[in-house]
Design a protein around this nucleic acid. Structure first.
Length: 205
DNA sequence: CATGGGATTGACT
DNA sequence: GTCAATCCCATGC
């Protein structure tokens, strides 16, 4: 089956990173024949010190300052590859970290790549989901539309997903920002959301 | 050029 | 709950 599905348009990403992070929950991340619904994200922006782009334009952060709608993939703790969606206009360093998926396609290959059976644990973390989907550092700067790596808009029941916000995980700076977003009631999160607050009703315009 | 610190995970006490 | 694995890169001397 050819990989010829719908992708979010580039303009979806050309917006404030916090809005994009919230709106990506319920969308589906595809890589070739594997896919999962995004149930958890975090926003990162050059203006706050938890963001890699905080240090400015360097060899590492170049993609973050590039055009929106591309993937920023980096190595974490020397071991894991973490995938982000670059947002905001070119010249602004910002991206949405994809933290967890609910597997929906290619589950057998995910289990093989992860070496685990539990559906809940296949993509319940940013380092897990890249392994499950076969995403690696070679995907850095790859487009998120029109290619083997893509994100499709909300569909079906996911169009009415309730998105909750809380503090980000695993960081040591800018802890006060509630820039983690998760699908309410999802069993596929990397960790439960604490300090639950509704976010979807904040949607403007 | 040496050093320190991670947007994590899985195994173990 | 604790902890090691592992490596790129930003920083500072």
């Amino acid at each position: 089956m050819p990989d010829r599905g719908v992708s979010l348009p580039r303009r979806f990403y050309d917006r404030p990173v916090v809005e994009v992070a919230r709106d990506l929950v319920g969308c589906t991340l595809h890589h070739r024949s594997a896919a999962g619904v995004i149930v958890e994200t975090e926003a990162y922006h050059e203006s706050e010190p938890a963001c890699h782009a905080y240090v400015g334009l360097t060899p590492r952060t170049g993609v973050l300052f590039g055009p929106p709608g591309r993937a920023y993939v980096y190595r974490s703790y020397g071991i894991h590859a973490l995938v982000n969606a670059v947002t905001e206009p070119e010249g602004v360093g910002a991206a949405v970290l994809i933290r967890a998926l609910e597997p929906v396609a290619g589950i057998a290959e995910m289990r093989a790549r992860r070496g685990r059976e539990s559906l809940r644990e296949l993509c319940s973390g940013p380092g897990k989901l890249t392994v499950a989907l076969g995403i690696g550092l070679g995907h850095n700067d790859a487009p998120l539309s029109g290619g083997p790596l893509r994100i499709a808009p909300r569909a079906g029941a996911w169009r009415e997903v309730e998105v909750l916000a809380g503090p980000r995980i695993g960081i040591t700076r800018a802890l006060e920002l509630r820039w983690r977003f998760a699908a309410a009631g999802s069993r596929f999160l990397s960790r439960p959301l604490r300090g639950v607050a509704r976010s979807e009703p904040l949607r403007r315009r």
